[in-house]
């Protein structure tokens, strides 16, 4: 295993087709060693397919790449041995007990001192007392912790987590992310795909993909800056009437409605400020403030752009 490279994952022009549908299109990205890398995008954008190619589970139709210095085309079997992969769905056996599941994983990786490793994992999980319980009877949060423990059992250098917190309650999600950060400080590289914006903000760096294409990449702050968006926040009750009027303005590229707040974003800050001026006077009982867009604003904007591009590209 070569450890000289600065990147844990480095792929270029990765392409995958299912039939004539291009699921991943010329994806290039790098994940630095030891960082938590967020992988964002709407459903069906090609996140899972990309992750599967990076861990040697799928053979790309085009492009090249390395995971932990191993070629994803020719050394898939070696990659599998070095990488921990946690699938989107609970991938362990619900009719095996917690201990039997971990035992099975340990056997499959042909680990030495299997009993001891499984015991350590159970202790760390806090599941020693429940080790004989069937995995299927665990709650969503515990299933996810067990799946993570199973993925970590062979002490991988790189963890690939595919939407690990889907269907998990907020407390369990918080605990989970604390564990992720703990693992990162131990030097493990983590690539995690997610839908949640609060999780995106916990990543060191992010990529946003849609329709199989990489739309933006960088730290959360960089993404916000790159977007070139200026965002006004209007707060108050009953905003829908105002929202309709504002949307008609040409300077407004995007708006996002939250409960009692409206985010109005535009590419041109000056034009936006000018366009909003009359409304500020007409609706003085609302609170108006100018500022940076949130990550969510940026992603919704990116997604809109991608939809437009995709549709025009499709027509020509």
């Amino acid at each position: 295993m070569s450890s000289s490279s600065e990147y844990a994952i480095e792929v270029a022009n990765l392409t995958k087709r299912f039939g004539d549908k291009v699921v991943v299109d010329q994806l290039s990205m790098q994940v630095r060693k030891g960082e938590i890398y967020g992988f964002l995008g709407p459903n069906g954008s090609g996140k899972t397919t990309s992750i599967r190619m990076m861990c040697g589970l799928l053979t790309p139709d085009g492009g090249t790449g390395q995971t932990l210095g191993l070629d994803i085309l020719s050394q898939a079997a070696d990659i599998k041995r070095e990488v921990g992969y946690m699938t989107q769905r609970f991938g362990l056996y619900s009719d095996l007990s917690i201990r039997e599941n971990l035992d099975f994983v340990a056997r499959v990786y042909a680990m030495d001192q299997r009993k001891q490793r499984v015991n350590t994992a159970l202790e760390r999980l806090g599941l020693v007392a429940r080790q004989q319980q069937l995995a299927g009877s665990l709650s969503g949060g515990w299933k996810q912790r067990l799946a993570l423990a199973a993925a970590l059992l062979h002490q991988p250098q790189l963890l690939l987590l595919d939407e690990p917190t889907a269907g998990v309650d907020p407390q369990a999600r918080r605990d989970f992310w604390e564990q992720i950060h703990q693992l990162a400080t131990e030097g493990i590289t983590i690539l995690v795909s997610t839908h949640y914006m609060d999780e995106a903000e916990r990543c060191h760096r992010l990529s946003y993909i849609a329709y199989g294409r990489l739309l933006a990449t960088g730290t959360p702050q960089e993404l916000i800056e790159q977007s070139g968006l200026q965002t006004w926040t209007v707060s108050g009750a009953a905003l829908s009437e105002l929202s309709k009027q504002l949307l008609a303005l040409s300077a407004v590229d995007m708006h996002t409605q939250f409960g009692n707040a409206l985010h109005i974003s535009g590419k041109d800050p000056q034009a936006l400020a000018q366009a909003l001026q009359p409304f500020q006077i007409a609706y003085p009982h609302y609170q108006w403030s100018e500022g940076q867009p949130t990550l969510e604003d940026v992603f919704i904007y990116l997604m809109q752009q991608a939809t437009d591009n995709f549709q025009t590209a499709g027509k020509t």
Binding site: L57, A77, T87, F90, G91, V108, A110
Partner: peptide, 14 residues
């Protein structure tokens, strides 16, 4: 169907 196959194939098992 239960998604365990994907998990299996991500391990070194052939």
């Amino acid at each position: 169907e239960q998604g365990t196959m994907e998990n299996l194939l991500a391990t070194p098992i052939k």
